[in-house]
Nucleic acid binder design. Structure first.
Lengths: 204, 204
DNA sequence: TCTTTTCTGTAGTGATCGTTACAGATAGAG
DNA sequence: CTCTATCTGTAACGATCACTACAGAAAAGA
């Protein structure tokens, strides 16, 4: 069985990984097939034979990102307390966003604006992915309320929206050249607000 | 004197205003000359005669944005107290970002990521503009410390970075379809953190 | 009126876009 | 070996990109 014709002359996983970095750096519209094939080290027909089309490569790239760097957030939210979870989310992503080995910022966050994937299906898919992060954060906080980790009066929705908004902002700052320390300072400040945010303190 | 030859057949200011909305919505790379001329209601030669080139139109569009919607932040920072200034910055921009009459989010913030203006000069110009907002916020907070409005121990740099990060995040959320109420809730949460942020309260 | 100057519409420039037709190469199945 | 299936390189497809040559139109200055 399997693989009847001429075998593929390149490693599909390696090529996809390279394609991901191109999309990550330039966005969907900003990355041309020529950019992709050059970085992937293959010809256009090979790309189309292996992946289908540009949007297909993009979809697989996003899926790969979610399974690698994108999994940071999901993993961070598994921390034992809500505070540790949110802090880990901010810090781990701040580190990843400024990793010199990869493009800066979050691939999914940064493909929302500007880039504006004109393909409606892909655009909707990306919006959904970003919404999923908010949902995950909200769910984690709600669990903390259930567990008594956070007070019952805590406005879980607002807290989640604020910290996700900060997370989005970190991507923009990273893409603008902010250093790891810059983003770390933002994370510090955001976590300094934690007690006030979650109702452990009340304003004067 | 003046205007010897055939007079221009359209209102340059109106045309520029329309060009601004196209760039605002699609970014620099995402907006084609065909998009621009269609929306502006003029032909390509008229555009080039009146503005020079695509980047020239973009530069003028950004300048116009700064003079109109972009001035919101500058005006907000003139509020009598630092707290009022930051709150006005967040709320006024949250309103503007979701104004149904204009594209969503901030033109300057959203042209950073994804879009990635490939022209280096324009890119540097935009980075500088975003940095200028951070500087303005920091200066406003420093003034507040001088005036005794904020305590001397307040970490002005960190507070400024956090609130600008939140402001960036609002643009991303707005572009993703967040409503005015959504953004308003984020502003509420961010301002609930104000006392903790500025050292009026200390964590337990 | 006639020249000069500027704008406008038509039409087209070469370059690049995503994508593919085609033929040769290379494998398994018979 | 032959047939079939798949991949690869060359070379090109039509569409669109930013941009402009050119000629005619419309104004001021003479």
């Amino acid at each position: 069985m399997a693989t009847r014709g001429r075998p593929r002359g390149f490693d599909r996983d390696v090529a996809l990984r390279r394609a991901m970095t191109v999309f990550w750096e330039h966005g969907f519209e900003g990355a041309s097939i020529a950019d992709l094939t050059t970085t992937m080290g293959i010809s256009a027909p090979s790309l189309y034979a292996a992946f289908g089309s540009k949007v297909d490569v993009y979809r697989e790239s996003v899926a790969l990102y979610r399974a690698t760097d994108g999994a940071l957030t999901r993993r961070a939210l598994e921390a034992p307390t809500a505070r540790q979870a949110i802090e880990a989310m901010l810090r781990d992503n701040a580190d990843a966003y400024t990793d010199p080995g990869t493009p800066r910022g979050c691939m999914i966050v940064l493909s929302g604006p500007g880039d504006t994937v004109r393909d409606d299906a892909v655009h909707a898919f990306l919006v959904e992915l970003r919404a999923a992060t908010l949902d995950a954060v909200r769910a984690r906080l709600a669990r903390a309320v259930d567990e008594g980790d956070l007070p019952a009066g805590c406005d879980v929705g607002s807290v989640a929206e604020l910290y996700v908004t900060v997370l989005y902002g970190l991507s923009v700052k990273a893409r603008d050249g902010a250093t790891r320390d810059d983003l770390s300072r933002v994370a510090d400040a955001a976590m300094a607000a934690w007690p006030a945010m979650t109702g452990l303190l009340t304003a004067t």
